[in-house]
Amino acid sequence: MMKTDFRREPLHIAILAGLLILGFFLPDWMRFLLQTALAGGLVALGVALQMRAGLVNFGQGLYYVLGGYAVGMLAAKAGITDVFLLLIAAIAIATVAGVVLGLLLSRYREIFYAMLSLAVSMILYGLLVKAAWLGSTDGFNIPAVTYLGWTPDRTVRPDVYYITTAVLTVLACLATARYLTSGAGMLCEAVAENEIRLEYLGASSRKVAFIAIVVAAALSGLGGGLFAMSTGHVDPLMTNWTTSGGFVFVALLAGRGSTIAPVIGFFLLELVRTYALDFAPNAWQMILGSVMLAVILLLPNGLWSLTEWRRKA
């Protein structure tokens, strides 16, 4: 098991912030890719958090879609377009769902947690596909958001959205780092290692798992909300198992060494995907799969292990 030390976390997050400032000057298409990847990266971070407690969530898309649909429904159906209200609602709804599901699921472990969370997320997928008033599989579009009454016009909107996403991602990473250095966060690895010993020591492994699930839900809700704001469109694919599988993949391969690892990892995955698609539109999945295999074979402890290695050397 990888030993993780989160005292260096502020430094990592500062590096992320620096990178995101540089990201502002990327070409439009790549900055947009980065922006949506940050949203997805928050979900991957949520998956990684649960993984520290030995919980592999193959249905994290559930919270992602809830965040996205919360923003979408409030903005498109209820006419509330203030970005702060929308994102708070996204986090709130995902958190409530996390509490409810956390109560139900926190006693499951390993593959059973994975499968049950997958089943729940796919049931939600089925419900959304059935919901003709929400556009079924087509989903629906979301109007531009406002900032305390100010509607950024078309020319500055991409900049404003990017800044919003970047700032919130950094804040979310900081909050997560804070959680990881707290008692409940530190005990996560103990749950994964040996629950019975943890219980003997007087801590409740179920409670630790529960908190991890709820924190992950909140992060994913924010991610879903940011994604909805960025793309202006939500559809049920956000909670399909293939989407959730992508989050698990990033969480695992990015490594659990830092809160910024899944965020950056998700961007790298998206970058590989889009270049593979551009390079070989007929065989991009093969390239993506080969890259995944190569990473698994060559970097057994995830991409983050590259930084560890440098420190040792």
């Binding site: 070409p27 298409w29 947009f32 949506t36 793309t231 698609l277 551009d278 991009w284």
Partner: peptide, 19 residues
């Protein structure tokens, strides 16, 4: 430039136009 619709449409549309 042919592109695969089975990927994320919004991201790939931007790539087609911007990139």
């Amino acid at each position: 430039t042919f592109s695969d619709e089975a990927s994320d449409a919004v991201v790939e549309y931007r790539n087609l136009v911007d990139r």
